[in-house]
Amino acid sequence: MAHETLLTRRLPLSSCLGAGMVVLCLTALLATASGAVTIAPAGILSQLGDWLFGIGEPLPERDRFILWSLRLPRIALAVLVGSSLALAGTALQGLFRNPLADPGLIGVSSGAALAAAAVIVLAGDLLRLSIALPLAAFAGGLLATVCVFLLSRRQGILSVGTMLLAGIAINALAGAGIGLFSYLGNDLQLRQLTFWTLGSLGSASWETVLPAGGLMVIACVALLSQARKLDVFVLGERDAFALGISPTALSIRVIVLCALAVGAAVAVSGLIGFLGLVVPHIVRMVLGPSHQRVMTASMVLGAIVLVVADSLARTIALPAEVPIGLLLSLIGAPFFLWLLRRTPTSGV
């Protein structure tokens, strides 16, 4: 298992979080400024000052529209999805007691996408309710997580090999299901489904961000409160019981909350893989494995990574847009392979 740390002395959490927040604000500002139409960062700041406190020079009408209706919801979505996926990845790694768990790899995300696809093709009327898609994705993600957890666990012992294999099977099954729905769907539905399988933040608008974002915030806050219990849980289920934690209750809570966070994220952004794997891993190398530290720091780093990746996706091939899921898989898949190579066979 990968247990080297980058630094022999662990850095203090507060200064890392502080630095992370500053970087996040700066990248968010730069990401807001860049795009097909460039808006000067100073102009953005004075417009924000005008909205919030009534001070500062408002931008021209067109820039104001771009800022409010296109860029800001998209940045908000990147922050929400990035931190939710990174946090869910951290929590799942604690639950599976292994740093190789990831919502994408073990099929949580594709379970969510399959349920979303089913709603789009079979129950299109439901889409008028903006909460319907996130809830359906939550249900799909929940089902997939429960399956993988039960399949990879025998007598309280989790096999990582079985976990990854079960993830492959569930990903294949969900992929076939999504394929079937694309076959059944009409042209419009097909375009929507493609968006899911590639992953994109392009659909961001306040109408989609707010309901899904609400679910993500609830799931994240509740997951953060489980941090110390997860530390005890990684000792093993029997040790956790001896230390006063009911392993079954904690597993159920973490599975439901991860499915909620991932489901809501998938519903508005499609399949964005590897974020939940790469981000907590980097954080652990710097801050150590304590869940309180890894969870909070992963949320900040996850948000930064997705904001940066999304502005690259938007601007790298103007006027076209590269799907962000593709971009992250290009970086994440080699990283995962490197991690597998580094991991002694005993871990899998």
Partner: peptide, 10 residues
């Protein structure tokens, strides 16, 4: 317990 496997670098 006899075995306490722990994969994280605590």
């Amino acid at each position: 317990l006899q075995h306490s496997p722990l994969g994280f670098a605590f």
